[in-house]
Design a protein around this nucleic acid. Structure first.
Lengths: 142, 142
DNA sequence: CCTTTTTACTTGCAAATCGAAAGTAATAAC
DNA sequence: GTTATTACTTTCGATTTGCAAGTAAAAAGG
């Protein structure tokens, strides 16, 4: 776990030292939604992350124990990224950000069903989602 | 409300387009903790934000309706920043980030009491905190 | 008043980071 | 055996960061 430069001992500040940028939490978002993703999958997301930025962020997230890179079954080129338990613990924060964004800046039809389910029973949603992400195998949603 | 460049319609992405950097949420954190802050107060926080960055972030947060600048009573030089209702709505996200940071990257003695109170009853804590921040007058904590 | 201090910024500039595009090396597919 | 995929790396101009110094206006002090 390579230490990033810590500006203070405040947990908010320390967190932002790791993922406080415009891309890192989008990687975590994709892993929350799909459970596993390849490098190429990330580049196909709507925000069109540049490949150099992606590589850099994946490295920081992996060094900080938030994501894990696994070998892709029967393929030596591809890799499979997934959330570590520490990464799964970011889901509540991500959901709160999504709720805020859905309420105040972006009402996307495509994720309204998702946010509605969250709003219906947040505790249950978090429990289910985090449990699924923590399960060892199981198929991805996509 | 000056529109920031939106990379996609995803609410997470749109949120990060506004506050996805290492400083913005620290400004929100200070306003959550102290309710009101002057420009100089922000510069005195532990992370030592540079004045040009601070000015730039305050402008973006104000343009996006997250913070409000008020005149300081009986003083034409000072200003008083506070969270708007939209800014107060960021508190749950901020708290989740703080909880994650406290658990996984930073166990600061100074804010342990704070985080312990959150953990004891999150719903109650959020309700109280957000209500205090929404109240029109009332003295600051500090 | 008149001077000094405080406050909230702005400016200048070097260094770091971002981001688009092209390049590469290894494996997979045909 | 040739072509295509995949996962990066490299290059380079543009933007952003962050430290330091500067500034203008109001407040405080004498």
């Amino acid at each position: 776990m390579k230490s990033v430069e810590k500006r203070s001992d405040c947990p908010v500040s320390s967190s932002l030292d790791i993922f406080g940028d415009r891309w890192s939490l989008l990687i975590v978002r994709d892993l929350m939604l799909y459970k596993t993703r390849t490098y190429g999958d990330f580049t196909k997301s709507a925000e069109k992350i540049a490949t150099n930025i992606l590589a850099s962020r994946l490295q920081v997230l992996e060094e900080n124990g938030i994501i894990i890179k696994l070998p892709y079954p029967d393929n030596k080129v591809k890799g499979l990224y997934k959330l570590s338990p520490k990464g799964v613990d970011l889901v509540p924060a991500l959901i709160e950000i999504a709720l805020w964004g859905g309420k105040h800046v972006s009402n996307d039809d495509q994720c309204s069903p998702f946010l509605n389910e969250v709003k219906k029973n947040k505790t249950k949603f978090l429990k289910n989602t985090m449990a699924k992400l923590s399960a060892e195998d199981e198929a991805t949603i996509d």
